[in-house]
Simulated assay, not measured.
Amino acid sequence: MIRIVIAEDQHMLRGAFASLLQLEDDIEIVAQVSDGHEALSMIEACKPDLCLLDIEMPGLTGLEVAAAIRRGGLTCKIMIVTTFARPGYLQQAMSAAVDAYLLKDEPIEFLVEAIRKVMQGKRVVSPYLADSLFAHEDNPLTEREQEVLRMAAEGDSTRVIAGKLYLTTGTVRNYLSSAIQKLEVETRHHAISKARDRGWI
């Protein structure tokens, strides 16, 4: 029996995954959770064979949960199931040594087959995303530029960012300006969007 924890913040989708997967004779859903912290707690408590993680969840993202599982030496197989066909996310998932990365619009049969392949020690990536593995694009942003962009993305003003990082507002503006130039866009909003799309922040 393949014991699975499902972590998905959309209630209807989480329920649909559970209902469809439990129709399989060799699959048992041991827990369903809606955020990353719950996911990690249940994985540690239930010791499932496999966890199905959404990327964008409250608390911890699916990628952060995956990294914590690997750091903790847990043997749980990791499958990311997401709506996001972003090369940056896929690269981060591969760096976290996940076992599968699937798009949510795949047929349920593909998901079931992927689960069984992963349990056999294989790695599975949605066919649509496979080409992205070979289109790796290096992150041009420095750690500080990423940090400043992340804070701007959360709605912090230049003054607030400066206060939190113990920098002058001019220095923060310089970091934002540098990020905008490197990403070849015109505004901080475009920079945030592009950096997120690439999985750089």
Rank of each mutant, 00 (worst) to 15 (best):
M1E: 03
M1D: 01
E8T: 06
E8N: 07
Q10A: 08
M12T: 13
L13K: 05
F17M: 11
S19V: 09
L21N: 06
L21M: 09
D26S: 11
I27S: 03
D35M: 11
G36T: 05
H37K: 13
E38H: 14
A39K: 10
S41K: 15
I43H: 04
A45N: 11
P48H: 04
D49G: 04
L52C: 14
L53T: 06
T61D: 11
T61S: 14
L63S: 03
V65Q: 08
G72K: 11
L74C: 02
L74K: 05
C76W: 05
M79E: 09
I80A: 06
I80G: 07
V81R: 07
T82A: 05
T83D: 11
G88Q: 13
Q92T: 10
L102V: 05
V112K: 09
K117M: 13
V125M: 03
P127L: 08
Y128N: 01
D131K: 14
S132R: 09
D138P: 14
P140H: 11
P140N: 08
T142Q: 13
T142S: 15
E145M: 06
Q146N: 07
V148T: 10
R150N: 01
M151N: 02
M151F: 08
A153N: 12
G155M: 09
R159V: 11
R159D: 15
I161E: 03
Y166S: 12
T171Q: 15
R173G: 04
R173C: 13
L176V: 07
I180R: 00
K182D: 00
E186R: 00
E186M: 02
H189G: 01
H190C: 07
A191T: 07
A191D: 06
I192R: 04
S193C: 13
A195M: 02
